[in-house]
Design a protein around this nucleic acid. Structure first.
Lengths: 162, 162
DNA sequence: CACTTATTTCACAAAGTTGTGAAGTTAAGA
DNA sequence: TCTTAACTTCACAACTTTGTGAAATAAGTG
């Protein structure tokens, strides 16, 4: 068992997990990963086992297996096992937000490359081609700016944080 | 009929529309809106009628109707009709990227508010609460920075653009 | 005002997702 | 090596989403 959470209204927390999960799934994250993420966010220790997640979310272990695999791939979560333990603990990345951005980055690169392909197919001198050039340039701009944005966040947040 | 596109390899263009549509749907846009968006992007005039879209994408007018309603709500497209015309023309917004960002903004505000709710439910002084405070602050930071990022884009892109 | 053409809405069918139970696999402990 | 507990995989069922055809609505024209 993990360290218990500080005393709290269990029912209110459960409702909150669902509402956060809902918002995240509206943002494009799949439902189950969103709920797992929400459950981990609201746990004091920041880590839970598959069994704990399954119980808290009232789903089968199979569903947890799929969700954590996704969150792991996307880089939002790590799988940990203490030596001599049989169960994995799933933990949110400490520097959560960096991971989120790395993921966005991958998508944007795919999008920019798709724009580039279109310029090849249509010719940069046609009206449609020019529109694609603008799309590509904007995406390239974002890909360049996002790391700087992240630096600014770390600076602005200052020494107060971990 | 709309002004015809500059001579091009029709088949290559059609394949490209599908590939761009695929990338966008992987980015979270629904399939049909993604394909309509791609078709408009690759058209010289930047506008098409519902019938033209239906033909080019090989789908029924009903599907177009749903897709353009979505794109309109999201602010990616305008519906236009010339005086004395019977058919609508759907046109991409000139300042496409601004629209995209406005939409993201809405989602981020929802996310930040969800974080705020969680702080209320868990208490800002618990470990879980602190994690939510960080999430809220980061989102607030983004919501503040994004308009500035957009200004920077317009400046950097300079006088070369429309 | 009637006719014609374009668009939207609706109920339904097809397709795709998502979660389940059960079987299979891996690894710890004796 | 054998036993047992945890995790993963797979086929399937429930559910959602998405696009279709047909009917209804709206708009232009004679």
């Amino acid at each position: 068992m993990t360290t218990p959470d500080i005393e709290r209204d269990a029912d209110a927390v459960r409702r909150y997990i669902e509402s956060l999960g809902l918002v995240l799934s509206q943002l494009g994250m799949q439902r189950m990963p969103a709920r797992v993420f929400a459950a981990l966010m609201t746990t004091d220790s920041g880590k839970l086992t598959a069994a704990e997640l399954a119980e808290q979310l009232s789903v089968s272990p199979a569903a947890i297996s799929g969700a954590v695999r996704y969150l792991d791939q996307v880089g939002l979560l790590v799988k940990e096992r203490e030596p001599g333990e049989r169960r994995d603990h799933y933990r949110l990345y400490d520097d959560l937000w960096y991971a989120t951005f790395l993921k966005r980055d991958r998508f944007m690169i795919a999008w920019r490359d798709a724009a580039q392909d279109g310029i090849g197919a249509l010719g940069a001198d046609t009206p449609a081609g020019k529109r694609l050039v603008e799309m590509r340039d904007f995406l390239a701009f974002l890909i360049k700016e996002i790391p700087e944005l992240f630096d600014r966040w770390h600076r602005e947040r200052g020494p107060a944080a971990s």
